[in-house]
Computed example of a mutant assay.
Amino acid sequence: MTMIRGAAAITGAASGIGRALAVELAQRGCDLALADRDEAGLKTLSAEIGRQRKVTVHRVDVGEPADIAHFATDAIAAHPSLNIVVNNAGVALMGTFEEIDQAQMEWLFGINFWGVVHGTRAFLPHLKTRPEAHIVNLSSVFGIIAPPGQAAYAAAKFAVRGFSESVRHELAVAASPVRLSVVHPGGVATAIARNSRGGVGVTDNARRAQSIERFETAARTTPKDAALRIIRGIEKNEPRILIGNDARFMDLLQRFRPATYWAPLQRKLERMAKGTGK
Rank of each mutant, 00 (worst) to 15 (best):
I212L: 12
L252H: 02
L252C: 01
D251A: 15
A206I: 10
F249M: 13
S196H: 02
R248P: 02
N205I: 13
A273K: 10
E238W: 00
D246G: 07
R271D: 14
R220I: 08
E213H: 14
V200C: 08
G233F: 10
G199A: 01
I243S: 06
K236Y: 00
F215V: 05
S211P: 02
I234A: 14
L253I: 09
V202Y: 08
R271V: 07
T203V: 08
E235P: 03
L228M: 07
K236H: 12
R214T: 12
P239G: 06
N205R: 15
R208E: 01
F249S: 11
Q254H: 15
V200N: 11
A206C: 01
R232Q: 10
S196K: 03
A219S: 15
E238S: 06
R214N: 14
R229N: 08
A247G: 12
S211F: 11
K224T: 14
R208G: 00
Q266K: 14
G201Q: 07
E270Y: 00
V202G: 04
L265R: 06
A263Y: 00
T260K: 12
P258W: 09
P239L: 05
E238Q: 11
I231L: 12
I230H: 02
S196Q: 02
I234W: 12
K236E: 09
G233R: 14
G233C: 13
I230L: 06
L252V: 03
G244F: 06
N237H: 08
D246S: 13
I212R: 15
R197N: 09
S211V: 12
N237G: 05
L242G: 00
A227P: 09
R214M: 15
Q266W: 04
N245E: 08
Y261S: 06
A273T: 14
N195Y: 03
S196F: 05
T217V: 09
R240M: 09
S211M: 14
L242M: 05
E270K: 10
A247P: 09
R229M: 07
P239A: 10
A219Y: 04
P223H: 05
I234E: 14
T217L: 06
R257N: 01
E238I: 02
I212F: 06
K268T: 04
N195H: 12
S211Y: 10
D246C: 05
I212E: 14
M272P: 00
A273C: 02
L228W: 04
R257P: 00
T260R: 15
A219C: 01
E270C: 00
G201F: 06
G201Y: 09
N237K: 08
T260H: 13
I234H: 11
F249H: 10
K236S: 13
I241D: 10
D225E: 14
T222R: 12
K268R: 07
G199Q: 06
G198V: 11
R267L: 10
T260A: 13
K224C: 01
A273W: 05
E270M: 12
G233S: 13
R207K: 13
G201C: 07
T221V: 15
I241W: 07
P258V: 02
R197H: 10
R267Y: 04
A218T: 06
N195L: 07
A259Y: 07
W262M: 13
A219R: 04
G233H: 13
E235C: 05
L269A: 08
N205C: 06
R248W: 08
G233A: 11
S196Y: 02
R232V: 01
R248C: 05
Q254P: 00
Q254W: 02
M250L: 15
G198T: 14
